[in-house]
């Protein structure tokens, strides 16, 4: 069998297909749909996006070309960098807040409730995804508006009104609406799979309950915590619904910058510059996080 495989690989005219080649072909067929899908709907558009960023716009008409002018112009504008820093900062803040709120929830779901209760809780955390994110963000408008539900209730006790809509706070509320259930789920899976013996071993070696959380549970759940945070960052960084409807577009985030740029005089190539910058940023963040998550020791 091995001999024939060797002969076939040596002689290109060999008409018998070797077993190894058959397996490869079989595997290839299974992989093919994924490859085709990814190529048509991800790789090719992405390459086109990069190419588009080098096109030119003359008289409100796009002309194919290969000119770095869009990159130079965009990168020399203060408003681009302001938007970049603001978007990054807001997404980072959203990630930190979501992770901090999610951790106690995930901890409780992992250790303090029964298996059945945990399953129900995860089910309820998935339910928000059944409804449109846009609808959920709209309903937040009613709740946090100046004359909205919260301020109406606060006015009864003589407080407020607090301006929450069209602020960074509003954006964060929107981001959390999108990401918090997901972060809780990812953290719960990670914490719940921790070997209980390790936690008891820590107690047994003189490590108190609270200290065990930081010295044992966090390192053991590291992968889930980082992947949860990464998802939160990616979703927040690229989102335009929350900063638009709850953040009031002021200051604009990169996603809003893309919309504005396309609306003003067909500037698709400049919008492509912003989009490519965002993708590169997310790639760097993602690789760094995954690298951190799977690094062997803390």
């Amino acid at each position: 069998m091995n001999d024939s495989a060797v002969e076939n690989s040596k002689g290109p005219q060999g008409n018998a297909v070797s077993a190894a080649e058959k397996t490869n072909l079989f595997a290839l067929i299974w992989r093919l749909p994924m490859l085709v899908w990814q190529s048509i709907f991800f790789a090719i558009p992405l390459l086109f996006l990069v190419y588009l960023s080098f096109w030119l716009v003359r008289n409100y008409r796009m002309e194919p070309g290969f000119d770095p002018v869009n990159w130079i112009k965009m990168f020399s504008k203060d408003y681009f960098w302001d938007a970049y820093v603001y978007t990054f900062g807001l997404a980072f803040l959203s990630t930190v807040v979501a992770s901090l709120i999610a951790f106690p929830c995930a901890y409780a779901l992992s250790f303090k409730v029964s298996e059945t209760a945990r399953r129900w809780a995860i089910f309820f955390l998935i339910i928000p995804f059944f409804t449109s994110y846009l609808v959920r963000v709209y309903s937040w408008q009613i709740i946090i508006a100046e004359n909205g539900v919260i301020n109406a209730m606060l006015s009864y006790v003589g407080l407020g009104p607090f301006i929450m809509l069209n602020t960074a706070f509003g954006s964060i509320v929107g981001y959390l609406t999108l990401t918090l259930p997901l972060v809780v789920i990812l953290q719960t899976f990670s914490i719940a799979s921790i070997d209980r013996n390790l936690i008891e071993a820590a107690h047994n070696l003189g490590c108190g309950r609270l200290r065990t959380v930081f010295t044992v549970i966090v390192p053991l759940a590291k992968i889930g915590l980082i992947i949860g945070a990464l998802f939160c960052f990616i979703l927040s960084f690229g989102d335009f619904v929350s900063p638009y409807y709850l953040g009031g577009s002021k200051p604009p985030t990169l996603s809003i910058l893309i919309i504005d740029t396309t609306k003003s005089g067909q500037q698709w190539p400049k919008a492509a510059v912003v989009a490519v910058t965002m993708i590169v940023t997310l790639l760097v963040v993602a690789f760094t996080s995954v690298g951190l998550a799977y690094r062997k020791r803390t």
């Binding site: 008891e200 071993a201 047994n204 070696l205 490590c207 108190g208 044992v216 020791r297």
Partner: peptide, 22 residues
């Protein structure tokens, strides 16, 4: 008296060594 307040170390069947520490 809680487990962390006594000096009764246990050698576990699964050993329960911390994988994130050398």
């Amino acid at each position: 008296v809680g487990p962390s307040e006594r000096d009764t170390p246990l050698v576990w069947q699964t050993l329960a060594l911390f994988p994130f520490l050398n």
